[in-house]
């Protein structure tokens, strides 16, 4: 009886694992195939593993440039998010006041409001400031858009630090700035890492704001470049190249995730979001 139920419960698990993995394998194999091969034998292994498709995607279809742009935006955006969120999270957690309550609710409420609503004014604001088509500005916009979520997570982690540590530091004559940067920040390292991983993944994958706020091909990030590659591939029927482009966009995140998945799971299950 136990054996039967053990097998029965595995059927949906294996089936779903297959449904998740199969498209990825199919994409990966397609990246090594020629057009003719993709049409005639979509199910088989590629006959020879040539990297032509990857080279063409990287060089001829702007994916290389876009890869570097995405990397830049992801790193700068994640860094800015943390820099902007730690001091606010600390002040809001430690100095409880009416004003602080209002502020924290404003940040939380903004997470409920669809960002689409703000895109048109944001576009014209950046146009006025001459910041359209600017990767630094895009990073800043990304960072601000994730500041409320990041503050929300970090407040939880700061709340777990015993107050005595800070009080002892005050007795030793440490300034509040010193306490914030030398004592509190190192102690919430786990929280910072977890939230930064989540932020970085969503900046790497972001598409629509980049589509609206970037304009020249040399500035495009991966999402926008992939969307253009898709349109080009339809005209050139460069399907193998498109598959290769998809791989270039996905593989770094999968590797990154495999390294850090423990942190994500931990942050997700241990108190961060409840």
């Amino acid at each position: 009886m136990k054996v039967v139920s053990q097998i029965l419960v595995r059927i949906p698990l294996i089936l779903w694992a297959f449904i998740v993995i199969f498209p990825l394998i199919w994409m990966f194999m397609g990246a090594f195939k020629s057009n003719a091969e993709i049409f005639t034998s979509p199910w088989s292994f590629p006959t020879d593993f040539s990297f032509t498709n990857f080279e063409r995607a990287w060089n001829d279809y702007n994916i290389g440039r876009a890869f570097l742009n995405s990397f830049f935006v992801t790193v700068l955006g994640s860094f800015l998010t943390i820099i902007l969120s730690i001091p606010t999270a600390y002040a809001l957690e430690r100095v409880r006041s009416k004003f602080g309550e209002v502020l924290i609710n404003v940040y939380l409420a903004s997470m409920m409001i669809p960002s689409v609503l703000g895109w048109i004014p944001l576009f014209f604001l950046l146009m006025k400031l001459n910041l359209l088509d600017n990767l630094w500005a895009l990073s800043l916009v990304y960072a601000i858009s994730h500041v409320p979520f990041t503050i929300f997570i970090l407040v939880g982690f700061i709340g777990n630090i015993p107050k005595e540590l800070e009080e002892a530091a005050v007795v030793d004559g440490m300034s509040p700035y010193g306490i914030l940067f030398k004592i509190v920040t190192p102690l919430i390292k786990t929280g910072i890492i977890t939230v930064t991983i989540l932020n970085a993944i969503s900046y790497w994958n972001e598409f629509f704001m980049a589509l609206i706020l970037l304009q020249t091909e040399s500035k495009n990030t991966l999402g926008v470049a992939m969307n253009l590659l898709k349109i080009d591939a339809q005209y050139d029927s460069a399907w193998g190249v498109l598959f290769a482009g998809l791989c270039i966009a996905v593989i770094p995140v999968i590797i990154f995730y495999s390294f850090f998945q423990r942190h994500i799971v931990k942050g997700m299950t241990e108190g961060a979001i409840k």
Partner: peptide, 9 residues
């Protein structure tokens, strides 16, 4: 970058 665009909308 968040409040102004939303009111602007």
């Amino acid at each position: 970058f968040t409040v102004y665009p939303m009111l602007g909308g």
